[in-house]
C-alpha cells in the first residue's frame, strides 16, 4: 500500500493506505481524529470540512494521497494551548449547535470565511458563505449570529 505523509494539527503523521482512502477516512480511521464527520456522499453537507494549507476543503472529496506534504488542520487542532478558538467560543455562547454533528465542519468553514472576508460580516454574506454546510437542528439563526460574533472576536 502506498505511503502518505502530511502534517495534521501541527504533527507529522504518515501511514500506508489503500489508494482509495479519502482524507476524511485517513483522519478518522487511521489517525482516530473522529471530530471530522461524514454527513453525505455527494460533497454537499460540509460536516467534513477541514483546512488544508489554510483553506477550507471537504475532506470527503479529496484523496489522502493527493495531500502528500500538506498541512491539515481539523477541529481538534483549532484550540491552542488549551484555549478555545474565538469561533468555538462564539458557537457555544450563541447556542449555535444542538446535536453537534455539523458543528466541526461549520466551525472550520466559519473560520475560513473570516480568513477570506474579514472580521465584519453582515448577515447576508454569512448566509451565502455557509452555502456548503447543512445544519438540520438550528434553523441557522444562531449559527449566523455566532459567525458574526466569532468574526469580530477573531479581530481582537
Amino acid at each position: 500500500m502506498p505511503k502518505v505523509s502530511m502534517t495534521v494539527n501541527g504533527k507529522e503523521v504518515s501511514g500506508n493506505i489503500d489508494s482509495r482512502t479519502l482524507l476524511v477516512q485517513f483522519l478518522r480511521d487511521t489517525l482516530r481524529l473522529t471530530g471530522t464527520h461524514v454527513g453525505c456522499d455527494t460533497s454537499q453537507c460540509g460536516c467534513c470540512v477541514v483546512h488544508v494549507d489554510g483553506k477550507a476543503l471537504k475532506s470527503c472529496t479529496v484523496l489522502a494521497l493527493t495531500l502528500e506534504g500538506a498541512n491539515v488542520m481539523t477541529i481538534e487542532g483549532l484550540a491552542t494551548d488549551g484555549k478555545l478558538h474565538p469561533m468555538q467560543e462564539a458557537f457555544r455562547e450563541n447556542h449555535a449547535l444542538q446535536c453537534g454533528f455539523c458543528t466541526p465542519g461549520m466551525i472550520m468553514t466559519s473560520v475560513d470565511i473570516v480568513n477570506r472576508k474579514g472580521n465584519k460580516l453582515d448577515e447576508q454574506t454569512i448566509r451565502h458563505e455557509l452555502e456548503g454546510n447543512l445544519c438540520r437542528c438550528t434553523g441557522y439563526h444562531n449559527i449566523v449570529k455566532a459567525v458574526a460574533a466569532g468574526a469580530e472576536a477573531m479581530g481582537k
Partner: peptide, 9 residues
C-alpha cells in the same frame, strides 16, 4: 460555482 470549499479545490 459550488460552495467555498468546492471553489478552493
Amino acid at each position: 460555482i459550488g460552495d467555498p470549499a468546492v471553489r478552493h479545490r
